[in-house]
Nucleic acid binder design. Structure first.
Lengths: 226, 226, 226, 226
DNA sequence: AATGAATGAGGGTTCATTCAT
DNA sequence: TATGAATGAACCCTCATTCAT
């Protein structure tokens, strides 16, 4: 750490990193470091000192921006949630594709990417610690879950309206389009070392099967590009 | 706690609880108590003192049977794992039902029960803490996951052999039959207070849709009795 | 501390100090040690670790008996308050002496002793920290101050009833009999090194003068033995 | 704080608060703010950041004038000590009043005012923290206590010389004229909420009684004007 | 001269673990 | 075997102090 500090000062002396600039980016740096630590060790087992060290920052600095460990945790979760979901929703609203093609194309790509992304760790974190942070869980539910469910419901309904799909109970349980994603995330985190799972194919298969199941009679399989 | 202890001694004196009996069942009582605590608070936030108190046992006693907190945790996980899965596998091997009927009957019932049971908490525990206990995760994978996957694969294959199902990639991803169960467990633990989810129907719908998707052409929907 | 621990074990091994016995006396030992530390450094500057060390006890033990530092502080104050005041009140009620003789005899001796005693430190502590511990201050007021005032009022009234004293406003301000004691305590703590103050004589003089001032006309000076 | 700073700058820009003026009075402003904080929370519990905030000054500025927290504390004590005592001494030397009248008039008014003033807090501060700042205590003793004692001794002696008073031991313990003031200060700080004490009357009564006690035979009670 | 971001030592508190009884 | 008093490492958080700007 002494080296790090020295290094920073050297950089600062050169004018490469200005104090003002650093100040503005510090919270993000700390959140990023915290993300790694929380993802790696879980909430309780994460030591703020390690977070600080990972952010090349002194032990006390995180407390300048986050009042408690829990606040920092919340900030981490919030930072990852952000707007990613808006993107796919936007796409959905404006696409020219059939619903089935959309599911097998952009939507599949979206959840495939999610499984491998850092945001997947947050899911694990929330599954693990969520019940101890009800406020945070509520926030996550509102920002992510309920919106996602709503979007998916609309998507399926549109398929029905357009005559692509039969009316099925999938409309009531859009979670089924998401469920394998959770499974994939968990598998990757826990069992990948014991048995490799092709999560991309898993997710593709689920959508394939579900669309097969709900496709309106007489309709053709609108396969995706793969 | 003092009262509890006294009460036990009173009971013991009356012969209602025989010393020998208590001694023999002690480890199980401790594991049961630990299960409750771990399920309620997670690994790190569980205090061994509380476990002991819940088991009506002195603070030091757990260490007589479990060398460390981690050992106790492992014992908890193992205790819940055992046996239950053998039952459903046994049933599957010996059933007279068609595969579809089996999926919609005993298998569905099995996973529906699981979601509401205490064992579901273990899933959350493993998701949360699993990566810190690789040995335990390996054990769980071998005892539960790999066997479960294998069993499901056999089941689907049998359906294909019997001409009930077309060959589909579901055979390669039997996790899809399980995925909604994980989702249901997580939903119950985190979001139930925000939005009720009929997990039984969720699970039923998934099997319904998947069987629809893979049913061999010309076959009838072999609905279950419900 | 390692030495201390070893020493204790040696003693314990000899059977000189039994664990059970120690347990019963531990809280008192800790309170005694805390008294010394608090008296020496004040509340905030006292480290519980030092208290523990002074009590020849591990850092964590005080928390077994006192939930927080503040609880320990309260226990310290309470332990010193105790019953000492009941003694002088009892004496007052049963004495054969005239009121003046009582003031110049037992009462004077009592407050003289107080100034030099450990209890005097508590006064300093309360003066310094009292406003941050309102609950404790209330307790002290009820147990010590209000009772003391009441007792003194009764004493003076009795002197008036018996014709020893004229009615004066001293009856409304019995604090004046006590005031020099506080001054003496503070002087000892702060200025003794700069200028010696004969606190015994100070207290005696105050009573001498006050009794002179309130003595009923025609009465003789009922001098004390000195 | 940001607002405050901005406000100051706005004021400064208008020339209402000139930069030079502010700079010159800065130390005093900081000391004044520190006085409030120390008086309210005691030495240890006072945060320099709060002092700075109260002085509408940045966190680091106090260190420009006071090397450490302790230095600032000393400055606070010194700032309150100065001057005020010289006034009453001056008055005493030049008064035309009899000693008794002086005690019951200007002197009484002086200590009555003191009890209610902010300077009274300093007494509590010194009682609480004095022994940790021996240098400061020495300073206080020399500047205030010893001079005060000396002055009072001279006053009493003059009364004796003039035939107003008999020679008594009060001459050796002029602290007795001050003692109730300390009591009053402490009472106000700690017990006022439990029981109101008319400190003015307390102080008046003490002087009344003491002068009664030492008045030379044949002299009249030289009551004050009130 | 002034700011306020940054540092890091220090202390209160918890709790897994040990051990005398 | 069983108890629960005792230990002490560890961790969160605070705040006096520094220093780049």
């Amino acid at each position: 750490m002494a080296e790090t500090k020295t290094a920073q000062r050297r950089l600062a002396a050169r004018g490469i990193v200005k104090r003002r600039e650093r100040r503005d980016s510090r919270p993000q740096e700390i959140v990023a470091a915290a993300f790694e630590e929380f993802a790696a060790h879980g909430y309780a087992a994460t030591r703020l000192e390690d977070v600080a060290a990972r952010a090349h920052v002194s032990k006390g600095l995180p407390y300048l921006y986050f009042k408690t460990k829990e606040e920092l945790f919340k900030a981490v979760v919030r930072s990852v949630i952000t707007s990613h979901f808006d993107v796919i929703r936007e796409k959905m609203e404006t696409t020219d594709l059939s619903v089935e093609a959309f599911l097998k194309g952009p939507f599949l790509a979206f959840i495939q990417e999610l499984v491998g992304s850092k945001r997947a760790f947050i899911a694990r974190l929330l599954i693990a610690e969520g019940h101890k942070h009800p406020e945070l869980t509520a926030f996550y539910y509102e920002q992510v879950v309920s919106r996602g469910i709503e979007t998916l419901t609309r998507l399926i309904d549109r398929g029905i309206e357009r005559g692509e799909f039969r009316p099925t109970r999938l409309r009531d349980f859009p979670q089924l389009l998401i469920a394998p994603m959770l499974t994939a995330i968990i598998w990757r985190g826990l069992f990948e070392r014991h048995h490799h799972l092709d999560t991309d194919a898993l997710l593709a298969t689920n959508i394939e099967l579900l669309t097969d199941a709900i496709r309106a009679p007489g309709r053709h399989n609108q396969g995706d590009a793969r």
